[in-house]
Structures are given as C-alpha cells and as structure tokens.
Amino acid sequence: MVLVLAETIEGKIRNSSFEAVYYGSKVADILKTSCHALIIGHCSDGGRLGSFGAKEIWHVDDATLSAFDSQVYTKIIAQVASDKGASVIIVSDSSNGKSVLGRLGVSLNAGAVRGVNKLPELKDGKLNFDRPVFSGKAIATCRVNSDIAVVSLMGNSLKPQSSGADITVQKLNISVPASKTKVINVKRSVGIVPLAEAQVVVSAGRGLKDPSNWGIIEDLAIELGATTACSRPVADSGWRPHHEHVGQTGIAIRPNLYIAIGISGAIQHLAGVNSSKVIVVINKDPEAPFFKAADYGVCGDLFEVVPKFTEALKKFHIAHH
C-alpha cells in the first residue's frame, strides 16, 4: 500500500499535496496496490484528495497538531504506516516533508530518497527512483534495498489530474505524543504562491541596480501571476528577503517558466533553476553566460524591455479573455 502525507495550509490541502497524492496513485499502479492519504491536524477539505487518486483518506486531528513538530508527526505517520502496512510513504519535498523524511527512514527502517521527480521503475522487485543531485547538475538513480521506501516528491514533477469524486474522510484515533517544541509565531507573506510551488517565476539580479527599481519586476510578476525570486547578491544586500534567493545555496526550483532579468547566470545560480521547463533571459550583455542555458533570450536594457514585455502581456491577456 502507498501512503501519502497530505499537508495543509490554513486548514486547506496544499496544492503540492494534490500532486503528491496523484503521484502516489501512479506509484500504487506500478506496485498493483492502492494509494491512501493521511492528513494530520485541522483540515476542512480533505475529501478532495479522493478525486486525485486516494482510495481512502485518514485524518488524525488534535488541537496540538496545528503546530508542526517533526518528532510528533513522524510518530503518527510511522504508526499509521505500520498499522496499515504501507510499503511506500510519500511526502512533499517541503520544509515539513524534509523534516520528517530522514526520521521516517530511521523509524521504519526504510530507504529514504529525497526529491524524486519522476515515477519510479520497478526492477527485480526493487524501486528505482530518479532525483536531481549536485543541485540539478546531474540526475541520479537511487535503488531502495529495504522493504519500505520513503520518498519526498519535488513540486511540479507531474501535472495532477482529478477524476472521479471526493470521498469521505475517516478519522483515526491515535494517541498524540507530547511535543518538546512550541511554535510561537508564524510569519508568512499572504496571497503569494510559495516559490517551491510556483508555476511561473520572475527573478531579478544585480542588473536591477537598486531596490527602488523592483517595481517593474513586481508589475511583470503580477501580470503573469508569478512569484518573484532573486539572485544571491540581491538577497545578501537586503534588497529582497532571503527566502527569495534561488540557486545552489538558496532554494532549487523547477517552474514551468523562469524569467531571469539582469542575472548573469553564474554556475551556482543556474544550479538552482536549470530544471525549469522554459527559461527566458533578459540581459544587456550578449556574452552573459545565462543565454547558454536559456530557451529564449532578449538582449537589451531591462529598464526598457521589462515594461514593454508587461505591456505586451496586458494586451495579450485582454485579447484572450
């Protein structure tokens, strides 16, 4: 049986979890078994996971579970996995997913594979998962030798499809262990798709010259419904928050469309973004290394090109609605 941990945000299933459940249902097809979802903490729309491939949806709810604690969550997931006989456990490659992945590996004596991005192959009774390594500069195939596998799924690895109907969520009664941690504050920028889940990302670098110029980047991002990101020097000099820094020492992303504006394309930057499906580079230097990694390039002054691009998009959106 395949067990998928579904994460919530403000009591609603996260988009990345629909993808994880859909992926889980495909893994279950390979293993000729079924896919089941587990929700921990308050959630009001869990039934939707049924249409993405969950045969059953289990819910462990308790007031204390609204705050994430890797130790407590691991105990619950491991217990459900053993009670129900799971052979593959899937979590999202999120901050919480990554916090429980290693713990689950130990707790269930299971091979742990972080950040898979394709369906596994079953070879000689063992699951082989592909995952990016060296910050996306290579792809590794990882074979799980143990009876149980735990994996985290990179966002945007496959397009979740919903078919069929919602199903009823079943409450599980599991005693919740006490937590040694206390979340005292959560600060989140509201209304913005987190970078790791974003389909479209508009990113800018030092070519922007000054933080006061960021407005043209935001205008473009709004027009595209995109999340903004930046190169490391931009975050380091405090122009933008650290969590927007992408690259080898920032976060690695793989959106459908990555637009790099005034970024030179240093190897460490490329490492975090080169798995994007389509890359557009806007740079005034025809020799900028980023053009070599791009699908589409615009060689010109960003202060002229970006507003024109935003205008062209506006026209396009009006014409297509």
Binding site: S94, K180, T181, V183, K187, R188, S189, P194
Partner: peptide, 16 residues
C-alpha cells in the same frame, strides 16, 4: 525556521 514563503519561530525544551 524557514518555511515556504515565510518563517516560523520555535521554542525547544531540552537537547535538540
């Protein structure tokens, strides 16, 4: 702690 699109502040008791 860095989380998607923000941060969480956490207190811990004992070794960690």
């Amino acid at each position: 702690r860095d989380i998607e699109g923000g941060v969480e502040e956490i207190e811990v008791t004992g070794p960690y």
